[in-house]
């Protein structure tokens, strides 16, 4: 009986520690939020959205437009490849090929961002002479987003109920038609979730962009190569180490904006998930 009481006391201690850890984790998270919000939100003035970065401060218009342009181009590059490869995995691959495919995608998601950035720098920016450019930056982001998009599409397509496919086939639909009329519509919310998560990842990336997209003080143009593109994370990383209060304010504003964008996309993505999928099918 006594040992049971001792065990109970020890257990209570451990549970206390466990809850303390949870509280500490949430407190640290909130402190980061508070830090960014307190310093960033006051700096987030409306002019920032309409003026370009200039000198020691200026605005964020170029970085915002560049971020969206890079992420959108990255998505554009990855969307077909990501969904296509998931489609093959689910529809055509043998179980062994399926395992290998998923494994590859997982491994790709573990490649360090700087390795991708350096590879593209050497191969494209210098090697092919593209210079810092939209296409090089977008490709870097695309390599990052690919696993997220592909994994989400794979999971979503895998959940298409067999009865629906069989029903369609029984009604005389061609297999390709089944894919486009039955499987895709069913999987669409899951695929969109994956795209949103990939967008969140893309918005927050820095390392692969520094040596691919470069940086520009001006609004991005349509040029695929030879024109550097600005983006928000660059502002955070460079302007915080300038010795000017104005530069710091810009860095904080960019950080706050980034957090808003990333969390916004994550919340929308989670909304999709709650709405469409049971817990066990979620992707992160």
């Amino acid at each position: 009986m006594r040992s049971r009481r001792v065990a109970g006391a020890i257990g209570a201690l451990w549970w206390g520690l466990s809850v303390a850890c949870l509280v500490a984790a949430i407190a640290l998270l909130l402190s980061i939020f508070a830090f960014v919000a307190l310093r960033g939100l006051p700096a987030l003035r409306p002019q920032l959205f309409f003026t370009v970065t200039h000198g020691i401060a200026g605005g964020l218009a170029n970085a915002i437009a560049g971020t969206f342009l890079l992420v959108a181009s990255g998505l554009l590059l990855v969307i077909v490849v990501g969904i296509g490869s998931a489609l093959w995995t689910v529809e055509y691959a043998s179980p062994r090929a399926q395992r290998l495919m998923r494994f590859t995608i997982d491994v790709l998601s573990g490649v360090p961002s700087i390795v991708v950035g350096y590879f593209l720098y050497v191969a494209l920016v210098e090697g092919l002479g593209w210079g810092f450019s939209l296409l090089a930056g977008a490709l870097a982001l695309a390599i990052f987003m690919l696993p997220y998009v592909s994994r989400a599409a794979d999971l979503a397509l895998s959940t298409v109920p067999r009865e629906m496919r069989e029903g369609a086939v029984a009604l005389g639909a061609r297999p390709a038609t089944v894919v486009f009329t039955i499987a895709f519509p069913w999987a669409l919310p899951g695929i969109l979730t994956g795209l949103l998560i990939a967008t969140g990842i893309g918005l927050g990336e820095t390392a692969p962009l520094i040596y691919t997209a470069g940086w520009s003080n001006y609004m991005p143009t349509l040029a695929l190569t030879h024109e550097p593109v600005g983006y928000l994370t660059y502002v955070v990383w460079t302007y915080i180490s300038q010795p000017f209060a104005k530069s710091h304010a810009l860095a904080y504003a960019a950080a706050a904006l980034l957090m808003i964008l990333v969390f916004g996309t994550n919340l929308v993505a989670r909304g999709f998930v709650e709405y469409r999928f049971p817990r066990s099918q979620r992707i992160h």
Binding site: L22, A25, I26, L29, S31, I32, F35, V36, G200, L203, G204, E205, T206, A207, T233, V236, W237, I240, S241, A251, Y252, A255, L258, M259, V262, F263, N266, R270, H284
Partner: peptide, 24 residues
């Protein structure tokens, strides 16, 4: 709510962690 917080934490961009690290 707790789960959402944990998941949001994994979405914080790397430079923001770095910023907090440098300043705080």
């Amino acid at each position: 709510l707790a789960n959402a917080l944990v998941e949001l934490m994994s979405g914080i961009p790397s430079v923001v962690y770095g910023l907090w690290g440098m300043i705080v």
